[in-house]
């Protein structure tokens, strides 16, 4: 069936339903059909990581997944990180440690780091760097990002 399909999914706790061609990429569905433009498109071949979102709790690239594949999934994007009107501790750490400049890789960095810190709540710096190598940044030299993730780790570990 190349005809439009119905996609029902939950994004940041809110249910959505849309219709699209089966070939529509998940990232395009989020940005165009749901107007959630916080997730960015950087390469469309799964390398730069700017489009990374949480799908059923784990980080994955939304540019190399079809929207129809996310039917029934629970997705979290950068727009869903704030809690009670305040920055999530990871977001706050990025601000504190200058973990962003242009902000374009930031959604991918945040979602990747969030997943990583759940898997590894007490990482070493090389482990942080290895995890963040999933996302390309051209502004920061990664310095502030690595610092931010290191600073957020104990805060998140305490909350867990």
């Amino acid at each position: 069936m190349a005809e439009p399909v119905t996609v029902r999914l939950t994004v940041n706790g809110v249910g959505h339903e849309g219709r699209c061609e089966p070939r529509k990429l998940l990232v395009d569905f989020l940005r165009e059909d749901l107007a959630l433009t916080g997730t960015h498109v950087g390469c469309e071949h799964g390398i730069c990581g700017a489009c990374t979102v949480l799908i059923d709790g784990v980080a994955a690239r939304s540019c190399i997944m079809l929207a129809v594949q996310a039917d029934g999934a629970e997705i979290v994007t950068i727009e869903g990180l704030m809690q009670d009107g305040a920055l999530h501790p990871l977001q706050a750490a990025f601000r504190e440690h200058h973990g962003l400049q242009c902000g374009f890789c930031t959604p991918g960095m945040l979602m990747t780091a969030l997943d990583f810190l759940r898997v590894n709540p007490t990482p070493t710096e090389p482990e942080i760097r290895e995890a963040l190598s999933a996302v390309l940044c051209r502004c920061t030299g990664y310095h502030g990002i690595v610092k931010a993730v290191a600073a957020a780790a104990p805060v998140l570990a305490k909350r867990a």
Binding site: G46, G49, T52, I55, V58, A59, A60, R61, I64, M65, T112, D115, F116, V119, A131, S133, A134
Partner: peptide
Amino acid sequence: VGHLPIRSR
């Protein structure tokens, strides 16, 4: 193999 988000899928 790639990176964690690649290994997720």
